[in-house]
Amino acid sequence: MNTKIGYLIAIALLLVAPFAIYPVFLMKLLCFALFASAFNLILGYGGLLSFGHAAFFGGAAYVTGHALKVWGLPTELGILVGTAIAGVLGLAIGLLAIRRQGIYFAMITLAMAQMVYFFFISADFTGGENGLQGVPRGTALGFIDLQDNLNMYYFVLAIFALGYFIISRAVNSPFGQILSAIRDNEDRATSLGYDVDRYKLLAFVLSATLAGLAGSTKTVVFQLASLTDAHWHMSGEVVLMTLLGGLGTIVGPAVGAGIIVTLQNYLASGPLGAWVPVVLGIIFVICVLAFRRGVVGELREMLRKSF
């Protein structure tokens, strides 16, 4: 009941937000919130630390950019194609990585993502260091002009809501039950007849696909896909967002993304502009040392204790 009220308030706030805050900033926030929530599906609920999610985010960003700019696909279709490619990439990388756990899983995903990154550097269609610029935003449903920032905002909000719904449903589904069982005790799940690797693979593919959806949407918002999207810094940033917000909580990663993106934006224009990575690093250390459950996780724990 309380969560329902919380969601209603959040939706109301998100609907009126662009009248108070610059819409492009909000859209960036939503894209990264979706990215972090998708990542949380594999780290928080699957218990697997992927260090290669930039490959899905960046891969989808490039594919969507190419599809819209060169092939001239409608916006929705372009986003769909990018998202689908991220899913396929997730399946390929997942099939290799899922056999290993812990640090080895992280290493394999990182290595694969680096290969994807170097492919993007050398491929022609990405525009190399310049990135893929001037991607047209097009229209939504064929008649809503997305060049208008307000229209674009509601379009992104709808995508975010859809992605967020899929994630929270997956967590609270029959599949989600098995996933938490595997995270809690993998051997026991096996001895109850579950082929755990298949469940982990599905979680990984879902996570990759939705990370792709975030990347594709980001391309449309900024009309740009660049190497930054696929760089391993991006993989690290999403880990930070998820941990800061609260691992394995539904809203945590979105909150974490909000904090990080806001900090980046405000710090970049201030006197600390050149020190953003240092500030983020310090936050990360404090987070890991002092409040390991993350912002949302700690709040939830405080509520639990006081009632």
Binding site: R169, S173, P174, F175, Y194, R198, Y199, L202
Partner: peptide, 11 residues
């Protein structure tokens, strides 16, 4: 058990 789109209430 693979149905990630179904509600947990189905259980």
């Amino acid at each position: 058990s693979f149905h990630f789109w179904r509600s947990v209430k189905s259980l």
